[in-house]
Design a protein around this nucleic acid. Structure first.
Lengths: 348, 348
DNA sequence: TCAATGTTCCAAAGCGCTTTGACAAAAGCA
DNA sequence: TGCTTTTGTCAAAGCGCTTTGGAACATTGA
């Protein structure tokens, strides 16, 4: 069934049917109803290729997927993608992926752009001075980055959360509670969000003349096992930290296991604040000791990014070029006053 | 630059240029050269949408990506995807992904099929009695599955490795070396490959009247941390196993850490055979004690699957409907004769 | 009543490619 | 030489949609 057949069936012209379908105003409501009804009955679906040829829009956004360990290989990316997908389905958009060696991300991105299969590009997992940025700017194709690239001129469209402020605020809270020995369970060192979160922590501490010891910062992929082993290391230190900042509830999950196994009490012997991406299977309020968190929904970010990208393609705009979302600092039971000095020094 | 302009530039008809480009025989070699040269100079690229409309082929294969923890979230999938991608790029094909809640994989697959954006579908991570199968068969769109679905009629196109034979053979080798106490570090229980590998092990053992204790089988995602913790559990058992079968070199990595930490020697106190997917960053020959493995390249499987899928779309066929690749059993130093009874029983 | 303004619909012209059917020119054959 | 094949090329007809530029009709205001 194609447009022509459908229009003949209805005794209308293709123009009218097309307009009825695409929500143009110059068609009688009654006529539109008839058309919609016929579509339902016949199961008509417009031919994508024809639509694309006629409009010049493919209805798709492209992304390159580095096929390496550590990359896109975690729950967080899945959660983000879910948001992206939700919104895309709503607008009948789709995603084109280009699997690529992480050493050739730039090339893959370029190939994706010139392939003619996508209307816009999406990139994530930004690093400092990210080389993809200059390339994207040289392309004449809309793009949007999730996150930012530390050290690059911020003249590109992005959506990010204020990671620095999040961890700055979290650290301030712990400082106010009297903590002085901090540790950081962070994501991979080269990633922008990890850089900024560390900076936030460092900035808050330096206002009090404090620092984080180098061996009190762990940079790993964000799995609970790695959170656990890093935390175990921290807890074995002679002057073990009492305040832990954690880049993900997933890391926190492992970290708390380590705390428990060491016979310590969360929120008393050790205070912990985790960043909460609002992963549905890992709610901070459901931890046995509910977690104090900096919160920002990853899925919501996915939805918003899809919105902006799709809007740009459809020229629904205008959208703000750059968005920096504030995180919420939500206090629960995992943070408490710093333990008295003499208690901290004890082992298990 | 489009075909019309290019052909005018060359003083040829669109027909001839099109044919020159698409490798049709009825065009003079000299003419073809001229055309190719002009393409190089002008940077002409055929419009995908137009090609698609004219041919009815989108040049794309679709896959749904469940956005849940544990799923597609490991190195193995990345490696496979790399192979798929390599071949796709070679044929100028692309992938369309549909991120989906794992509870709605079937729906997502259907939506992908009727979206009109793909020519063929690919599915992986098959489970027993997989509900996607009947749905795929009801569609009139080519598809190919990686793996099989235990318990389903094997009347669908697939490419799989003979997981059962692999672990059967591996177990036989260990039996011949005198081992009697086996353990299995397997992938997620519901996945087809895990089912079959377990069956292979069980079959080999039962020929000798042996079994694997329920608590000597671990079913987890395939990360090294989980391999380590499972192995630690095994090693603490009063009658600890001396023969370990391992579904991935990634799991083995952790398992061996546990062996070392227990002060045991791999290949002497404990023998281990892992399945080797030929992950480039994890070569069994580079382990401090080189690993005996059952080997089959995941990337090669990706390439082959892309070949078949693309070939089917282009009607290059015929391809075999079903392929079952044998794995290679490669003996290295991680396997040795079973230790004498009295030695096994000792602790660290 | 009549011109002016909406409202609702249509015919036809693309979008840029592939492919069919025809046709000269060149080559093979007797 | 005249005849059939083969070779190399072309014009034109789609593929199925969107969109432009009217046109017919109904409605309004004076």
């Amino acid at each position: 069934m194609n447009l022509k057949q459908l229009s003949e069936l209805l005794g209308l012209s293709q123009t009218t049917v097309s307009r009825a379908l695409n929500g143009y105003p110059e068609v009688n409501e009654a006529t539109r109803e008839r058309v919609l009804q016929a579509v339902k009955e016949t199961g008509y679906r417009p031919n994508k290729a024809a639509q694309r040829l006629a409009t010049g829009k493919a209805g798709s956004i492209g992304l390159v997927m580095p096929t390496a360990p550590d990359h896109y290989s975690d729950v967080h990316f899945g959660e983000f993608l879910t948001g992206l997908g939700e919104e895309a389905v709503r607008h009948d958009f789709h995603f084109v992926i280009m699997p690529a060696d992480p050493n050739d991300e730039v090339g893959a991105l370029r190939r994706l752009a010139i392939s003619g299969n996508v209307d816009a590009l999406f990139v994530a997992y930004m690093r400092g001075h990210d080389p993809r940025l200059p390339m994207l700017k040289s392309l004449s194709m809309p793009f949007l980055v999730h996150g930012r690239s530390f050290g690059s001129e911020p003249d590109y469209p992005y959506l990010d959360i204020d990671n620095e402020a999040a961890f700055y605020d979290a650290a301030r809270l712990l400082l106010q509670l009297g903590h002085t020995r901090f540790a950081l369970l962070n994501g991979p060192e080269h990633l922008d969000f990890a850089i900024r979160r560390k900076n936030g922590l460092v900035a808050a501490l330096s206002e009090r003349g404090l620092t984080v010891a180098e061996d009190c910062m762990s940079h790993t992929s964000m799995t609970d096992e790695l959170g656990q082993s890093a935390m175990e290391r921290f807890l074995q230190m002679p002057e073990r930290p009492t305040a832990i900042l954690c880049s993900s509830t997933v890391l926190a999950l492992g970290a708390i296991r380590a705390v428990n196994q060491a016979g310590l009490r969360l929120g008393e012997d050790v205070s912990l604040i985790a960043h909460d991406d609002v992963l549905p299977h890992l709610k901070p309020e459901n931890f046995s000791v509910p977690l104090t968190t900096t919160r920002s929904s990853l899925r919501a970010a996915g939805v918003r990014i899809a919105q902006r990208l799709i809007g740009t393609v459809k020229q629904d705009g205008p959208f703000p070029e750059q968005e920096l979302w504030k995180t919420e600092l939500i206090v629960r039971a995992s943070t408490g006053p710093a333990p008295r000095q003499d208690q901290n020094l004890g082992g298990v």
